[in-house]
Design a protein around this nucleic acid. Structure first.
Lengths: 259, 259
DNA sequence: TGACGTCACTTGTCCTTACGAGTGATGACT
DNA sequence: AGTCATCACTCGTAAGGACAAGTGACGTCA
């Protein structure tokens, strides 16, 4: 069970052996792997080599290591929370978004003023360094413990053009959609989905385990003439939640888009 | 520029210092970082400590290291390819999907027979171990070099119920949608989006850099009575491509969904 | 001039040693 | 019996040394 030669570096051979044992079910999810000392003996290698192999498996998200306890096979668990990216409107004109009743705010939303970056400027159809109202929230789903960072961005010129909007730039998105609609806009939305590894601050505020990517959604509300009015960002750990969309066929032939 | 004490481990202090220098722009994207030897001298630490710090930055996706050359600041590059998740139908009844004209198949698609897993079974409204036609393709966008893995799964019972489908279970999805429609189905689709770290084989076939998550989309076609008929999976590196969706407001109030 | 070998630089791998720090059980002391 | 110190086990951090392997420039040789 210990002699392997094929691929390349020693630690990769060790990592491959452990990985195979995990994927084949020899090491069940949530079970305790052999300790570093045992792996050293089992494969006849030094501790740095064992630790290097373990580091590779951590980076793949296959195992979790707990100081003083050992390495555990990560319960490959599929996401436990499905976030429906849909928008509905009730007969009395209010907007309802799935998740609006799931998430709870863990703190007071923090409002601030900022400026567009290259990315947010592009999404909002503006240049760089345009003035914005910003509002950040930390959302928590008490059922699953899932945490998410939520941000809304409203251009100054939009806030000033819409009655009541400039006074409450940190309202709930559903309320903002209602104000925009009352102002005569017929809203449609586009969403952009990306994934990336967390920076340390995202890792801590979202309480992410090792090797857990972040799913990052940017929802832009478009009003009359398809003009971008409002940006809503959501980011959360991809280990706990997944996204769900509904699609129906258009009538017109589609054209590809590239950036 | 070398004395730091705050956070915790030495290598974390070194990593924090380098990270700050990168994010503040002191080290420009694509520029060469100091070599390990230089960092050892600069911070007065040993090589393992420097390498540990560098490993942390690699795991965050901030730098790329090339053997024999050095460490480079990753050009934080936003995705260069936007994949529109939309479906259109032309007047003559054919289905058109954006990306159908972008992607090229790098090899012959490989057809096979398999069985549902827990995940695919749930998506297709079946149990486990139900018989399926499978078809895998490797797609490449010659413009950006982006690679993607594509998979279609058709339950046996669906293939047998639809004329012509069982003979060509590895057709292009647009063709399959046409056959399903000709059989009398009015199609709608649901998509589930997840992100996870690649396994070694995904890493190699998609040619992914370090610390690059995979975006994984499962599109399910629903026919009459909302019955799931057909599963289409797409996965690609989140460093190169992003997803785009279009949303319009429903009429009915929405209800949350949990799994 | 051109081809090629060498050399200096880089990171990659692997080993040894040592100690710090978190965890849980064991056992002694009150 | 209950409390708490100790200990054995785990992983985390840090240092040192040695050699392999990839890269590119420089200089020599034909």
């Amino acid at each position: 069970m210990s002699e392997i030669q094929r691929p390349g570096a020693l630690y990769q051979q060790v990592a491959a052996a452990i990985r195979e044992a995990i994927l084949s079910g020899e090491f069940a999810p949530d079970s305790l792997l052999p300790s570093e000392a045992q792996l050293m003996a089992r494969y006849g290698v030094s501790r740095p080599t064992v630790r290097n192999a373990i580091a590779a498996l951590r980076a793949e998200g296959l195992i979790d290591v707990r100081h003083g306890k050992g390495s555990f096979v990560r319960s490959s668990g599929q996401p436990v929370l499905t976030i429906e990216r849909r928008i509905s409107r009730t007969t009395d004109g209010a907007f309802v978004m799935p998740g609006g009743d799931i998430w709870q705010e863990s703190e007071e939303p923090s409002a601030y003023r900022t400026r567009t970056t290259k990315i947010t400027g592009r999404l909002l159809g503006l240049g760089e360094e345009e003035a914005l109202f910003g509002c950040d929230r930390l959302l928590v789903d008490p059922g699953t413990g899932t945490r998410a960072m939520h941000r809304t961005l409203i251009p100054f010129e939009v806030a000033e053009a819409v009655p009541l909007l400039a006074e409450e730039p940190c309202s709930h998105p559903a309320e903002i959609y209602r104000l925009l609609t009352q102002d005569g806009h017929k809203l449609t939305w586009t969403e952009t989905v990306r994934a990336h590894m967390p920076l340390p601050d995202e890792r801590t505020t979202l309480q992410l385990p090792d090797a857990t990517p972040i799913l990052h959604i940017a929802r832009v509300a478009h009003g009359t003439d398809d003009r971008p009015l409002f940006l809503e960002e959501l980011r959360f750990g991809a280990d706990r939640a997944e996204l769900a969309y509904r699609i129906t066929a258009d009538k017109q032939p589609a054209r590809r888009t590239r950036t």
